[in-house]
Amino acid sequence: MNPLTLNHYLLASGLLFSLGFAGVMLRRNIITIFMCLELMLNAANLSLVAFSRFHVGADGLPNYNAQVLVFFIITVAAAEVAVGLAIIVALYRARQTTHVEDIQSLKF
């Protein structure tokens, strides 16, 4: 079996991202759409960690800047989920629905 390369990880990451985007396009339930967004974020995390491991520095360690970025993404994503879900709850209270097709009133 061939040894693993960076491209394997990038491919896996890209496919995961595409899956997330397809989910955003297909699903109607706003919570599922939100989950798909998380999927896309994590796809980005995967490629970042792969790059981190790929760039071994002079000290023989991976490049940790990328991992710090991943750490920040996870933190921000957590905050985003909290706020997003709160908005969804507020929306549900007002409209009794979580289907995006039922929510069209922003235009007028």
């Binding site: 985007f21 955003v24 396009m25 109607r28 706003i30 759409i33 995006v100 097709e101 929510i103 069209q104 009133s105 922003l106 235009k107 007028f108």
Partner: peptide, 17 residues
Amino acid sequence: LRLLQFSNLQGYAFLFG
């Protein structure tokens, strides 16, 4: 500009993508 809007979340996602 409002006439250009179609008020569909996934439509916007499509345009964005």
